[in-house]
Structure formats: structure tokens, C-alpha cells
């Protein structure tokens, strides 16, 4: 089939080429259940979710409000405890980890990006990015060097000494993304990161998240915007706390294949 030959001709970036099945996922959710309340007022936020995200992969989670998207992200990041099931981050089951272990894992392995950026207003961009490293015991000098390198990677080095209120929303969100992935952190959990941004800026944030995943991070993107979800390798659909469907990884070559072959 000529299309199959074409698919090899398409340059794929970063971690896509690694055989996924052979490697350990950065994040694994195993039969994850979260129930709030009990008896008549019991609410089943998540009803047994299985999901793995590997290095180099960006997974989008979509679903109507109340479908469990945010609960999933909160549990994946160890900010809440599941009713049953397991959350395994880089091989460690965080549902059975002690409080200190969990705090250390959150500092070292997991980065968050929120809709409203959540940068600390009294700190500069570089200080915000350096903060997780400093909290983890890295010296201020080394942390700053790592923060500057991280800002440099996303072309924001010139903004290193600006405070959040001196930056645009898009710039703040890109700094938040740098903070989420500074050091050796490989898991980024993004909750509607484009929610407060205009379409073009939102797209630049998504392109950055995509490129960080191509460079080896694993990401979950919760969004209700189909156009942003489309940057992901897989899109998982939640409804009433269950995965009802998911798309396969993109096969750009299967569509408009004549043109794709030329690239």
C-alpha cells in the first residue's frame, strides 16, 4: 500500500518514534474510582478509569461538565485520594505513598498548569520557574540557572526578570508551562490551560505543550475546546465518570496523503 510508505516519509518529531509498549508509562491510572458522599447523596465522580500516558505523549481529556475531567486530573496529580484504584507515577503508586513521599514526588515529577496561570505575583518569571527546584532543596544559584535554561528553551529568556503583571496572559501561561516542566519533571497536567486566552495565543500555548511532549514529557490536557484537543496524540472522551471512547493517535498521512507525501 503506497500510503504506508508515505507514512514513513513524514518527519515525526521527538518521542513519537519510541516504541511505546516497551516502555513504562509515566502515568498509569488503574481502575480509578472516586465517589463523593454516601448513601442517597452519593456522587460517582469517576467509575473505574484505566489510562496510561507514556513519555512523548499528549493525551486530551474531553467531556461535558460534570463528566469527571477535573477529578481525573486532581487524582493523577496526587491532590486528592481515590476511593479505590491506583495512580502510578513513574513506577510509584502514589495512592499508597506516605505524605512526605507524595510531596517529594509532586515536587520532582509532576507539573500543573491551570487556566489562570497561578504564578506567584511577587516573584519574577525566573523565580517562579525556579521555585519548585528550590523547594526541593536545589541551591538558589543552580535553581536560577535551570530556570533560565528552561525559559531559554521556550524563547522567554528576555522576560526572566519580569513580574507576572508585566506579562501578557499568553506569556504567563508559557512561563507556567516552563515551571511545570523545570528540572526532571516529566508529567504535566494541564487543566483548561487555554481557557483565559484568545484563540491565537491559546494555540501558541498548545504548540508549546506539544513540543515539550515531543521532547519527552508526558501530558494530560483537560479541555472542552476541540481545536486544542486536536493537538493531542489521543483524545479520551469521558461521560458520567467513565471513558466512553477514545481516538487513536493521529495518522496525518491517511488524510490528504498526496500533500503529506511531499513534506
Amino acid at each position: 500500500m503506497p500510503d504506508q510508505h508515505r507514512s514513513h516519509a513524514i518527519p515525526r518529531t521527538g518521542g513519537h518514534s519510541a516504541p511505546r509498549s516497551a516502555s513504562q508509562p509515566v502515568l498509569r491510572l488503574d481502575r480509578l474510582v472516586r465517589t463523593h458522599g454516601s448513601g442517597a447523596t452519593e456522587v460517582h465522580a469517576l467509575r473505574g478509569i484505566d489510562l496510561s500516558v507514556h513519555a512523548g505523549e499528549l493525551v486530551a481529556v474531553m467531556g461535558p461538565s460534570g463528566s469527571g475531567k477535573s477529578t481525573l486530573l486532581t487524582l493523577a496529580g496526587g491532590l486528592d485520594t481515590p476511593t479505590s484504584g491506583h495512580v502510578i507515577v513513574e513506577g510509584m503508586d502514589i495512592t499508597t505513598a506516605g505524605r512526605r513521599q507524595l510531596a517529594a514526588l509532586r515536587r520532582r515529577s509532576i507539573g500543573y498548569v491551570f487556566q489562570d496561570y497561578n504564578l506567584i505575583p511577587a516573584l519574577t518569571a525566573a523565580e517562579n520557574v525556579a521555585l519548585p527546584l528550590e523547594l526541593d532543596g536545589t541551591s538558589a544559584r543552580k535553581a536560577r540557572a535551570a530556570a533560565l535554561a528552561s525559559l531559554d528553551e521556550i524563547n522567554l529568556r528576555p522576560l526572566a526578570d519580569r513580574f507576572p503583571d508585566e506579562m501578557s496572559g499568553g506569556q504567563q501561561q508559557r512561563v507556567a508551562l516552563a515551571r511545570a516542566l523545570v528540572g526532571n519533571r516529566r508529567l504535566v497536567l494541564a487543566d483548561e490551560p487555554t481557557g483565559a486566552l484568545d484563540s491565537e495565543t491559546g494555540e501558541s500555548v498548545l504548540a508549546l505543550l506539544r513540543s515539550r511532549c515531543d521532547a519527552g514529557a508526558a501530558g494530560i490536557l483537560v479541555t472542552h475546546e476541540p481545536r486544542f484537543a486536536a493537538w493531542a496524540d489521543r483524545v479520551v472522551f469521558l461521560r458520567d465518570g467513565s471513558v466512553v471512547d477514545e481516538t487513536l493517535r493521529s495518522r496525518a498521512d491517511s488524510l490528504l496523503s498526496g500533500r503529506a507525501a511531499g513534506l
Binding site: 518527519p11 474531553m62 486536536a230 483524545v235 481516538t247 493517535r249 496525518a252 491517511s254 488524510l255 490528504l256
Partner: peptide, 22 residues
Amino acid sequence: QSQRHATIQAMQDYTRLKAQAI
């Protein structure tokens, strides 16, 4: 849902091609 799956899948494909064009 079956259509949404196909539609989002197409968007993923277009988006990858778009990233290549950019």
C-alpha cells in the same frame, strides 16, 4: 459520539499537517 470520534480524529490529522506546514 461516533461522529464526534471521527470529527476529532480528522481535526487531529489536520492539526498535525498544520504543524508541519508551519
